[in-house]
Amino acid sequence: MRIAHRMLPAAFLAGLITLLAACAQMQELPSLPASHPEALAVGQQTDCSECHDDQARGTLKALTAFSHTPAFVKNHRFYAASDDRLCAVCHKSSFCNDCHTNKVEMKPSYKFGYRPDREMPHRGDFLTLHKIEGKLDPASCYRCHGRANNERCVACHR
């Protein structure tokens, strides 16, 4: 009952936004397509500028900003924080959850051992390395293990 009671504000807010969304339909505001009209090659660092030179309808940001350069892959958290609706045009949620999840069963690089070209965290003996990296940049641990996916941390950090 306590949880249900505390979900009321969330339900109210979501209801309000749904109502606003319904009103926004009448304004015919541009929206991103549900999915990319053409299938993109697997394993290719997608270069949006090969086909696009304009702004993405629905984000008003230049599509070339989303080309998957090494810099984009490394810094994709900045884009996902404000434009995950654009990510969703090509990627299912499970693509993100291969690495970002609440409870991981095995290292992503192990599950996808046949795809070493994918940037995956904690390759090799990270069990040793985390004793260095954790002191160097604890915020980088916190982002994924601070409020989720901490089962393996709890096993030793008591």
């Binding site: 936004i17 926004a24 989720a148």
Partner: peptide
């Protein structure tokens, strides 16, 4: 729980979410 999002006229946008927290493993002890 629930999440909702929409763009609004004049360049504004709004999103909200809420619900029960998804808990993880209990801390030791």
């Amino acid at each position: 729980g629930i999440s909702a999002r929409t763009d609004l006229p004049l360049g504004f946008g709004l999103s909200a979410f809420g619900g029960a927290t998804v808990h993880t493993k209990h801390l030791y002890g």
